[in-house]
Structures are given as structure tokens and as C-alpha cells.
Amino acid sequence: MYTPKKYQETDWQLISGFVRENSFGMLVSVLDGRPAGTHLPLELQEKMPGEWVLEGHLSAANPQRHTFASGQPFLAVFTAAHSYISSSWYEKEKIPTWNYMAVHIYGQLRIQTESELRASLERLMDTYEAASRCPVHISDVDPIELQKNIKGIVGFELKVEEVQSTFKLSQNRHDADYFSVVTHLKAKGDEHSRRIAEEMENRRPQ
């Protein structure tokens, strides 16, 4: 991912938090000479101090599974809020742009054993069921139905080997333009604009 230095994010605490908050990502590999991608939840886990992996699974019928034993590097893409930035918000008329946040993670992939997959599914359910009024645990699922579903998916672990992060948030603008962008984003009122404005305020308090 092309990332000018002024837009690079290097704080792993911020990056890992971003990945966890926006964990429905895209897994990309090359299948028969063409890029292949699947949208799926990718959960960041620290296997041991300083060793991070992404856990996920996809349908056994998904052709991308045939790339899992290829030895090729895989790419996981995570994105969040983004917003158009009008040049009319600047003191002097300039070119409009787009503010956004994105993280790319590269690494080798390993297929999980059935027991690893089951443990991964349990963690996934516990994470997302926590907000439910009546949380469902994996032990609540009928064992036969659970086993049938496990047989129909392929679990994997992607080792985090390289991280590229772009948090493009008007860092190149002076204060007057910067806070004008924040004000106009807030006025737009949509969720994406609000989130970008909030992130900009956190990074450069007024």
C-alpha cells in the first residue's frame, strides 16, 4: 500500500485496536494467476508475547481455499470510516481529496487443525455474543450440527509478518484548514464523517 510518511501510523497499540474494531476484513491471495478475495471476520490474537496472528475461516467450497497450501504470501485488508474532503473547506482553493484509515497485513498462512478451528470458533462466538441479551456459547450448539458445520469450513491462521498502515487525516494541512475540515465533517452528520472528524480531533486537539 502506498503510504507517504506523513500518513503512516506506526503505533502498534493503535493499529491493533483498529484491526480489532474493524475485524471484518478481506483476505487476498492469487488463484490461477488472478487476485482472489474473500470478505470475512479476521480476529487478531497474540499467540505469545510479540507474536501475532489473524484467525479466520471460510467455506470449504470457496475456491480460494486452494491457495492455502501454495506457500504464497497472503494479504489481509482492514478499512474503516472515510470521507470526501472538499477544497472549499480550505483558506485557499486547492484540490479536493479523501480522508481514510486502512491497515494491510501480510504473512504466511497455515491451515488450522480441527481442534484449533473449534477453539477459534469458540473465541469468535464469545467475542460477538457478548453484546447479546441472551449470549449463545458454542456448547449450546447441537454437537451433531456443530460437527457438520465444522466439516464444511476451513480454518486458518495468518502470521503477522508485515504491517502497512495509512491514516490519512489532513496531517499536511495547517491548523486553520485542519479544523475547518473537522467542522465541515461534523456538519455533514453522517457516521463516516463523524468518525473521521473525531479521529482528527484526537490527533490534534484544538
Results as ranks from 00 to 15, higher is better:
2 Y>G: 05
2 Y>P: 04
4 P>H: 05
7 Y>E: 04
10 T>I: 09
12 W>G: 00
13 Q>C: 01
14 L>M: 08
14 L>F: 07
15 I>E: 07
15 I>N: 04
16 S>F: 15
16 S>I: 01
16 S>Y: 14
18 F>N: 00
18 F>S: 07
20 R>H: 10
20 R>D: 09
22 N>K: 03
24 F>W: 06
27 L>H: 07
29 S>I: 01
29 S>L: 04
29 S>E: 05
30 V>A: 03
32 D>S: 11
35 P>I: 06
37 G>S: 15
38 T>F: 03
40 L>R: 00
41 P>G: 08
43 E>K: 07
44 L>W: 03
44 L>C: 02
44 L>A: 02
45 Q>V: 12
46 E>Y: 00
47 K>Y: 04
47 K>R: 15
50 G>R: 09
51 E>M: 08
53 V>M: 03
54 L>T: 01
55 E>Y: 10
56 G>W: 02
57 H>F: 07
58 L>G: 10
67 T>G: 08
68 F>C: 09
72 Q>C: 12
73 P>I: 08
74 F>G: 03
75 L>D: 07
81 A>C: 09
85 I>D: 11
86 S>D: 08
87 S>N: 10
89 W>A: 11
91 E>Y: 00
91 E>L: 14
92 K>E: 15
92 K>W: 02
93 E>V: 14
93 E>S: 15
95 I>C: 11
96 P>W: 12
98 W>S: 10
100 Y>V: 09
100 Y>D: 07
101 M>H: 05
102 A>W: 01
103 V>I: 03
104 H>K: 03
104 H>T: 10
106 Y>G: 04
107 G>Q: 08
108 Q>L: 14
110 R>Y: 05
111 I>A: 10
112 Q>I: 00
116 E>A: 10
117 L>H: 01
120 S>A: 13
120 S>T: 09
122 E>P: 00
122 E>Q: 13
125 M>K: 10
125 M>V: 11
130 A>E: 14
131 A>F: 01
131 A>H: 13
131 A>G: 05
131 A>K: 15
133 R>M: 01
135 P>H: 08
135 P>G: 08
139 S>T: 14
140 D>W: 01
140 D>F: 04
141 V>S: 02
142 D>H: 12
143 P>L: 06
143 P>S: 10
146 L>K: 02
146 L>N: 05
146 L>D: 06
147 Q>D: 15
151 K>H: 11
151 K>V: 02
153 I>L: 03
154 V>S: 06
156 F>M: 08
158 L>Q: 02
159 K>M: 11
161 E>I: 10
162 E>L: 09
162 E>S: 07
165 S>E: 00
165 S>I: 00
165 S>T: 14
166 T>C: 15
168 K>F: 03
169 L>K: 00
169 L>G: 08
172 N>W: 11
174 H>Q: 13
179 F>I: 07
179 F>K: 03
180 S>M: 05
182 V>Q: 08
183 T>P: 00
183 T>S: 15
184 H>K: 13
192 H>K: 13
192 H>I: 11
193 S>W: 04
197 A>L: 12
197 A>V: 12
201 E>W: 01
203 R>W: 07
203 R>N: 10
204 R>I: 06
204 R>N: 05
206 Q>H: 15
